[in-house]
Simulated scan of single mutants.
Amino acid sequence: MWTQSCSKIYPGVTKEAVWKLWTDVNNWPRWDTELEYCQMQGAFAKDSQFILKPVGGPKVKIILSEVVPYETFTDYCTFFGATMHDYHHLEETPDGLRITNTITVTGPLGLLWTHLVAKNVAKAVPRQMDALAELAKASHD
């Protein structure tokens, strides 16, 4: 199993503003420049699915495995011989909103998919979190 986590605190950002952006899956490319597009029909709820298309990559089907409004959600996608989980968490602290993103890859071919996909996804997370927080702060001001 491979895991990488990123956690940052953002003063002046509310969990409500971040949650609104997270649940608006079709507009994720507004703050995630690694995405060409996302397509979701229906509610942002456990077992819901959506398609995302990374820039320069193939379309990927994503499934929401956990959704706790204003607190956390986890999604996953499957590859041949591996599964990649992406855990997103919000925590209010005295210094601001802590946003945490943890990516985990499991399965017999996990090492292969870690090198092909997960490490690149994880590398972009700090940039994406900063852009998400900036957009959330601007929408709240």
Results as ranks from 00 to 15, higher is better:
K59N: 11
V60R: 12
I62L: 09
I62W: 11
L64Q: 05
E66T: 14
E66R: 15
E66Q: 15
V68Y: 07
V68K: 14
P69G: 08
P69W: 09
Y70C: 08
Y70M: 14
E71N: 12
E71P: 03
E71C: 11
E71Y: 07
T72G: 01
T72V: 08
F73W: 14
F73R: 07
D75R: 01
Y76N: 09
C77W: 07
T78I: 03
F79T: 05
F80P: 11
F80W: 13
F80E: 12
G81W: 07
A82G: 05
A82M: 08
T83F: 04
M84Q: 14
M84C: 15
H85G: 07
H85E: 12
Y87W: 11
H88R: 07
H88W: 10
H89F: 09
L90C: 06
E92R: 00
T93S: 00
T93P: 00
T93K: 06
P94T: 04
P94M: 07
D95Y: 06
D95S: 12
D95R: 10
D95E: 15
G96D: 02
G96M: 05
R98L: 05
R98T: 00
I99Y: 01
I99V: 09
T100D: 02
T100C: 04
N101K: 08
T102I: 06
T102C: 10
I103Y: 04
I103E: 07
I103P: 00
T104E: 14
V105A: 08
V105R: 00
T106F: 01
T106Y: 06
P108N: 03
P108C: 04
L109Y: 09
G110D: 08
G110K: 00
L111G: 15
L112R: 02
L112I: 15
L112E: 03
L112C: 08
W113G: 01
W113F: 10
W113A: 02
T114L: 02
H115I: 13
L116V: 15
A118L: 04
K119P: 00
N120Q: 13
V121P: 03
V121H: 06
A122E: 04
A122Y: 09
K123F: 08
K123T: 09
V125N: 02
V125Y: 01
P126D: 03
P126V: 06
R127C: 02
D130A: 14
D130Q: 13
A133V: 01
A133E: 01
E134K: 14
A136R: 00
A136M: 03
A136Y: 03
A136V: 02
K137Y: 05
A138F: 01
A138S: 12
A138N: 09
S139R: 08
S139I: 01
D141E: 12
